[in-house]
Design a protein around this nucleic acid. Structure first.
Length: 575
RNA sequence: GCCCUUGUAGCUCAGUUGGAUAGAGUGUCAGCCUCCGAAGUUGAAGGUCAUGCGUUCGAAUCGCAUCAAGGGUACCA
């Protein structure tokens, strides 16, 4: 892909009209392929060359010597359009896919490290549907960065420390729950969640309860043994359920270093802030002033001396830099916390950590749910948020009905139904720009036609089905290429599919550049649509072009499988 | 008040560094299974790109202003 642009630029430079670098900058991709594969708009050249753009394009078209692999150059309305030879594109693209397989379009290792902090749910609460966003965006980004050549450290910064535990402890003791080992061992998140909601309700009537919770957390932070024991039980109960769900979704982490992990690393941070005279008293708390950046002060310690979110994030950032020596550190956290991260990054700057500029908040919009006829943010606390496992179960059930109707003899249909369901939810989350709020419309999410996960999976399944009937496997790819006649893959349906496949590498880089999995989700849709069209229009099995077309089916399958994998979707083979 | 994000077809959204006739899906209407999976495919209809001004040969895209929605803004995370 890149080399085409290089060669066009060189050929243009050879006409003597302008420099290669300038030509390279002008090359762009036309909106549709009827205008070719590359184009040079000549309008900006008009002033320098003192000619009408139309004339410039026509003159260049006449002068330029067409590089190998290009079939045509033409001047249209001031645009100079280049067309790639279909057979050449088929050959170069498919040969590379045959050689690289699943890793076609991936970049070579670049020696860089990226830390990605994602999911990071709060302990003591059930995973709500909106936690899917950070989890799935982060999961996909970590796969995409790896494909782009990075070493990735996937970090789950569990919310396992803070006032929330004060609340749980207060409520647990207030309700006089048993605190023997056996009871604590068998605690479930469900119970904790109810406790949490009960606290919210009670604190509305008793304002003093919040203070009580804060005091309980302070006691926990100071090392009270009994409180520690309760905290450990709460944490273990939540983690058990979390792992079950991550496992089901195919999400993994390299580190579960939650907030509590940084507890003993905080004093050093406080000392440093004090030594550098950055920490001041304001309204009875310790803060770092950020006036010079037009930001509110960053709160470091509460009036009772206990720590805050920002304090622990500072310790975590310094720890990560020391431990992983990252080139980039990403925080996949919702948009509402933009100010918090800005503050933390600027405190690091004031501390003289030059790497503060490698820290990125990757924000995303919230999931809105219909509550009493209005779209609002679901809250675990008030019980308006749908629980992730409920949503997954509902999706699975609905898809199972679908399978029973269409393909009742499918083996493992419960598992496959769940995988399709999870993929549908994931895709719904990833297909749009991350900053957009997602309206969780049950009907839209549970419909499996059009721009959905199942649409993409269905394309993959159909490709696999043809391969199964032909008795071939993905592993035959490298050997099968020698039987391909590339000229047989130059009809519109085959060509446009190949053209899309050839863009995989660029799409991965685009997704990394914008930290945007939706780039690849949209790309998956493009592949699926072109694949559906190809097998609809070009009969594969039994045709005169069977070997060539079968190879394109295999190549498409392997590209699609990897794109699905990069998105964190299950590339299932039957449905 | 200040700050951040969003505004494109009835609905949900794409639209790359400014470039050719602003594209999909969904919904509505009309077609396509004796043929590799119809969870598919072909077509029709549907637009003041929130509004105004500006920059430019050229603006959905860049700048300024206004409007609307959502979020944040000192002891939650």
């Amino acid at each position: 892909m890149n080399s085409f642009e290089q060669e066009i630029a060189e050929a243009l430079a050879a006409t003597g009209s302008f420099e290669k670098e300038a030509a390279l900058k002008l090359i762009s991709v036309p909106p549709d392929t009827t205008h070719g594969n590359f184009t040079i708009p000549c309008f900006s050249l008009a002033k320098v060359m003192r000619k009408a753009p139309k004339m410039i394009a026509e003159d260049l078209a006449a002068q330029v010597k067409l590089p190998a692999g290009l079939s045509k150059v033409e001047a249209v309305n001031g645009y100079l359009n280049f067309f790639i030879d279909r057979g050449f594109l088929a050959k170069s693209t498919l040969e590379e896919i045959a050689a690289k397989g699943l890793e076609y379009g991936h970049a070579a290792p670049n020696g860089k490290v990226v830390c990605i902090d994602f999911s990071s749910p709060n302990i003591g609460k059930e995973l709500a549907f909106h936690h899917l966003r950070s989890t799935m965006i982060g999961n996909s980004l970590s796969r995409i960065y790896k494909a782009a050549g990075y070493k990735v450290e996937r970090i789950n910064h569990l919310g396992d420390w803070g006032t929330a535990f004060g609340k749980l402890i207060v409520m647990y003791l207030r309700e006089k729950r048993p605190t023997d080992d056996a009871t604590l061992d068998s605690l479930t998140v469900k119970e904790l969640n109810i406790l949490y909601a009960a606290f919210s309700k009670a604190s509305k009537e008793e304002p003093g309860l919040e203070d009580e919770a804060r005091a309980a957390f302070t006691k926990l932070e100071q090392g009270d043994e009994f409180y520690r024991k309760l905290w450990t039980a709460f944490r273990a109960a939540t983690l058990k359920e979390l792992m079950r769900i991550y496992d089901m979704m195919g999400v993994g982490f390299d580190h579960y270093t939650g907030e509590s992990f940084f507890e003993d690393k905080i004093p050093a941070i406080l000392d440093e802030l004090r030594e550098k005279n950055l920490m001041v008293k304001s309204q009875d708390l310790d803060v770092v002033m950020l006036d010079e950046f037009d930001l509110n002060p960053c709160l470091i310690r509460k009036s009772d001396g206990s720590t805050l979110y920002a304090t622990r994030d500072l310790a975590a950032a310094c720890y990560r830099k020391k431990e992983y020596n990252f080139d980039k550190c990403l925080y996949v956290v919702d948009l509402g916390q933009a100010l918090h991260f800005k503050q933390v990054f600027h405190v690091l700057k004031k501390m003289g950590r030059e790497w503060y500029k490698d820290m990125y908040h990757i924000p995303f919009g919230v999931i809105l749910q219909l509550v009493d006829g209005k779209w609002e943010k679901g809250k675990t606390r008030t019980g308006t948020a749908s629980l992730l496992r409920d949503v997954i179960e509902a999706a699975q059930k609905k898809i199972l009905e679908f399978i029973d109707e269409k393909n009742p003899n499918l083996e493992n249909k419960e598992l496959i139904a769940r995988q399709i369901g999870i993929s549908a939810l994931t895709f719904n989350d990833l297909k749009n720009s991350r900053l957009k709020d997602v309206r969780f419309d049950w009907d839209a999410v549970m419909s499996f036609e059009g721009d959905t996960g199942p649409y993409v999976q269905n394309a993959h399944v159909r490709l696999c089905s043809i391969m199964r009937k032909a008795g071939i496997d993905r592993a035959d790819l490298a050997a099968a290429i020698k039987d391909v006649n590339f000229a047989e893959l130059s009809d519109d349906a085959a060509y446009s599919l190949i053209n899309i496949l050839s863009k995989k590498g660029k799409k991965i880089l685009d997704a990394v550049a914008g930290d945007e999995p939706s780039v690849l989700a949209q790309y998956a849709l493009e592949i699926a649509e072109a694949a559906h069209k190809f097998i609809h229009e070009d009969r594969v099995l039994g045709s005169a072009e069977e070997k060539s077309r079968l190879f394109l089916v295999q190549a498409t399958q392997i590209v699609l499988e990897n794109v699905l994998d990069l998105l964190g979707l299950f590339p299932i083979r039957q449905m």
